[in-house]
């Protein structure tokens, strides 16, 4: 029953001095008290912060979008994509849901064309012309939970998460390359077990990519 909603907001900004040719993506995962009674109102808790960092790492490692693509004019203007991920219902395995929601949202984002007026140095936004983002990779996560290092479960629910001894998230893209193997502590796993998880994850990736493609297609046809 886990539900995650992802909104993408694009803004124009000045690129940083260190990376003049790059735009940036700012992901933020919000786990509001609405989604589960375990979260309290106030500043984001540790789990939400760790999830935000994880999503940021996935975006960077998998190169879903190349930061260079978000540049409009070198050193002057670039896009900033704010990816706000909000959990509406928490029933375990938010990380997978977040990655899928993010990917689907990115695939559906349309940016207007922006040109820089050379005389006044002001950006001109052409809302008529829109183009989708250039999605390079399709990373999809698969989470596993481990009970006493003998039992492995895929896609844990909230109840299972509260009982597990260790958690593992494997993110793969369509070329079966790994983007992240995230295991924050817990009981140990051998290389063989990890291999099992990775093969499951690659299958999962194909499944989800097919799903997203089909959904996006259906949205396009209906409009």
């Amino acid at each position: 029953n886990t539900t995650v909603i992802c909104g993408i907001k694009a803004e124009l900004a000045n690129p940083t001095v260190e990376a003049p040719g790059k735009g940036y993506i700012v992901p933020n995962v919000d786990l509001p008290p609405l989604c589960s009674s375990r979260f309290r109102p106030g500043p984001p808790g540790e789990q939400a912060q760790a999830a935000s960092q994880f999503i940021a790492d996935v975006i960077e490692s998998s190169e879903v979008i190349q930061a260079e693509d978000l540049c409009i004019e070198r050193g002057k203007l670039c896009w900033v994509l704010y990816c706000d991920l909000m959990c509406l219902d928490y029933d375990g395995n938010v990380l997978d849901a977040c990655v899928i929601a993010l990917l689907a949202a990115l695939k559906n984002t349309q940016l207007p064309e922006v040109t820089v007026n050379t005389e006044t140095c002001t950006p001109v936004v052409n809302l008529e012309k829109r183009h989708g983002l250039n999605i390079h990779k399709h990373p999809v996560g698969a989470s596993f939970c481990v009970f006493d290092d003998s039992i492995l479960l895929v896609d844990p629910t909230a109840e299972e998460e509260s009982l597990l001894t260790s958690q593992l998230t494997v993110v793969t893209d369509e070329a079966a390359r790994l983007c992240a193997v995230h295991k924050p502590g817990g009981t140990s796993l051998s290389g063989e077990k990890l291999q099992e998880c990775i093969s499951r994850a690659t299958v999962r990736q194909k499944e989800i990519q097919k799903l997203i493609d089909k959904v996006i297609h259906s949205v396009k046809t209906s409009q």
Binding site: E60, K183, G185, S188, L189
Partner: peptide, 14 residues
């Protein structure tokens, strides 16, 4: 000698 924690960055093959 088993893996207790893993944290990765960048993409790589199995």
């Amino acid at each position: 000698r088993r893996v207790m924690m893993s944290s990765t960055k960048g993409s790589f093959s199995v």
